[in-house]
Nucleic acid binder design. Structure first.
Lengths: 229, 229
DNA sequence: TGTAATCTGCCACTGAGGGGCAGTTTAAGT
DNA sequence: ACTTAAACTGCCCCTCAGTGGCAGATTACA
């Protein structure tokens, strides 16, 4: 959002070659999402995509690891932000709280533009099993990155201490629950009271998402005690 | 091949067509594992596999959804057994305990022959990233099957109650931790005291695996309280 | 300005996975 | 036992994701 026509919100200090790279990456992600939403994921071939963006297929695969990944660029952004946030913050107090706050901060930090394309992405994922699987996989994979950070911060070895790894898993489990509830589109608490205000049609923005995240994290302790008569 | 040398432990009561199906399925899984361990996953093509088993590639894809799946037949067996176990048992008391016991029962029920091929499978998975991803994905996917069972048993709606879904996730998270520790091959408690007895070389059998599972489940409550100073 | 490193485009190739059709085996009816 | 309907298998052909190689362009650097 500087005044340039095709300017990306990229740090102007970058080696220029990197900026170009980022620009095409951005272009690929955007048009990919547009095409996939329009014609469907399987109905769109990579050749059509790279045709539209005017890049070679070879270049595409230098930017993204797979056809699935380019559809979920927004989600990948989030994971990078999350891990970075965990790495940057200093850790004191309950680790689960720490993980919650870091995730909330990551979502907040990505801004307004992000949550629109993330919502679109989730819509696409919801009706494309292959993407659903990939998304799931990514979320599970972040766990190991998280654990690596936590290990250095806590000074424990995760191979000795199961708890650290479990916390990583828990954090992502909470995230998945949060997103599910977000998409299902209920209002703030309980089934859709807020929708009447017309402020949130559908899932709502990242404000609501953040609320869902906190909700899910806070529900973790309770779930352990859940019992049948 | 009617009076079959390689008779499977198949229920003789099955519709006969099903038995044939099971036999080729079994043959595919076994030789696939053998070939993959021998030459490597990517180095073995499907054409070579179906050549060896003497089936058409078309038939292969009627048995397994992908090349990855045939390598992890043992794991898929476990997940079916787990879900079946959860469905069969009646639920009372703490749900997390219930899930633990059902998983233990599932592993136990699969028997001696299974844990050998499962161990081999895990070895293959460990050195094949693609398979690692798939395995991870399967474990996460089981969660939704689990939750579906729990919902009917508890009579709650998982869309209202986050706790049920979290329990599903927790149970699989514990499983993944358990397997990691099992593979890492330490002895019963702490770093390898039992190995000196020569009773468990490497990870050890399903006895040890079960111990690891219980260990991981029991560590869940503790992990929540984990805190940094 | 020259030069070395890096990136891109193009081309050809492998291999997974699926669709269609014809032939065969099994289950069910009489 | 014989026939009919349904399900299964084999075979050939196709699409398309993803890779490696090489030549040409671009950028960083001296």
């Amino acid at each position: 959002m500087t005044t340039m026509p095709g300017a990306v919100s990229g740090d102007r200090a970058l080696p220029l070659r990197e900026r170009k790279k980022l620009r095409t990456r951005r272009a690929l992600a955007d048009t990919a999402l547009r095409l996939f939403l329009d014609r469907g994921f399987h109905e769109t071939t990579l050749d059509e995509l790279v045709e539209e963006v005017e890049v070679s297929k070879r270049t595409f695969f230098r930017m993204f690891q797979s056809k699935e990944d380019v559809a979920m660029a927004a989600e990948l952004e989030l994971w990078d932000a999350y891990v970075a946030e965990v790495a940057a913050r200093e850790l004191h107090g309950p680790v689960l709280d720490f993980l919650k706050q870091a995730l909330v901060a990551a979502v907040t930090g990505l801004g307004e533009e992000w949550d629109r394309s993330f919502l679109a992405t989730r819509g696409l994922i919801a009706r494309t099993p292959v993407l659903w699987d990939r998304s799931l996989l990514h979320s599970v994979t972040v766990q190991s990155r998280l654990v690596a950070e936590l290990e250095t911060k806590l000074g424990v070895d995760s191979r000795q201490d199961v708890r650290v790894r479990l916390l990583g898993e828990l954090s992502l489990a909470a995230w998945r629950c949060a997103v599910k509830n977000w998409i299902s589109g209920r209002g703030y608490d309980g089934p859709s009271p807020m929708e009447k205000l017309g402020r949130w049609k559908g899932p709502g923005g990242s404000k609501v998402l953040i609320h869902r995240v906190e909700e899910a994290f806070d529900a973790v302790p309770d779930s352990l005690t859940l019992a049948a008569p």
